[in-house]
């Protein structure tokens, strides 16, 4: 049975520290666009931490929620792509083939989670910042759409290693950059087809829910509700 990669986000562990946001930039060669373009809404964060304020001072409450591509099983971004750049892989990833993308941006329009980002220009890394680039991840050029890949390069690397060593993947072998960096262990990644995996176990939690569940996208990211003091 192929893998079905998914994630669980325990909002009771997440502190909103933002380490995942920077880890994602570092791993995936996501360019910074600078203040002028950021002001025009062109900053790219495949992973963001959302804030939900409730109440008024002094009874005010703030909850964080890290949001990345939900890798939907019924992804609205896929059928709208005229070039099949946005497509579903055997392992359930919602993948983007940069070389097929012609920049119609239909997918970003269709995505209810606003997690797709358009390259409005060629990225720039004034030397020697280019040395930080991860050679396992392609650098996207102007005119294509990019998004969270669940760090597919890390998945492939672990799969190739396991194959070479003639062994099965273990739960926890694959860690996307955000998961690896999270010190509170709020993010858990793994195979949803393995009922014993930690991510499967957490996804079955009564605290679990999917983001915008009712739009029918069948996301593979489960959010475990933040609890309150009893």
């Amino acid at each position: 049975m192929p893998h079905k990669w998914g994630m669980a986000v325990d909002l009771d562990r997440c502190t909103g520290c933002g380490a995942c946001v920077t880890a994602c930039h570092a791993e995936n060669n996501i360019p910074t666009v600078g203040p002028a373009q950021a002001a025009r809404g062109r900053a790219m964060h495949w992973l963001r931490v959302e804030r939900y304020w409730e109440g008024d001072f002094p009874d005010v409450r703030l909850t964080f929620r890290p949001v990345m591509c939900q890798h939907c099983d019924a992804a609205p971004c896929e059928p709208v792509c005229p070039t099949y750049a946005s497509h579903h892989t055997d392992e359930g990833l919602n993948a983007q083939v940069y070389n097929r993308c012609i920049g119609t941006r239909y997918c970003a329009n269709a995505c209810p989670y606003s997690v797709r980002f358009f390259d409005f220009f060629n990225p720039q890394w004034p030397k020697p910042l280019h040395l930080q680039l991860n050679p396992d991840v392609s650098v996207r050029e102007v005119g294509v759409m990019e998004k969270c890949t669940f760090c597919v390069q890390r998945i492939r690397a672990v799969e190739i290693d396991a194959k070479a060593e003639k062994r099965e993947l273990k739960d926890g072998d694959v860690k996307p950059a955000c998961v690896q960096g999270c010190s509170a262990r709020a993010l858990v990644f793994g195979d949803l087809n393995d009922p014993e995996s930690e991510v499967s176990r957490l996804s079955r939690s009564p605290r679990g829910s999917k983001l915008l569940e009712d739009v029918g996208t069948l996301p593979k990211v489960t959010y475990l509700e933040r609890q309150t003091q009893v």
């Binding site: 933002g18 380490a19 946001v21 920077t22 570092a26 910042l129 930080q132 690896q180 262990r185």
Partner: peptide, 18 residues
């Protein structure tokens, strides 16, 4: 313990700062 904060993640840019 295997984790790192946002600043730590970005520390590499100290070395490669233009």
């Amino acid at each position: 313990q295997g984790g790192l904060c946002a600043r730590g993640q970005a520390a590499i840019q100290v070395t490669y700062h233009p």
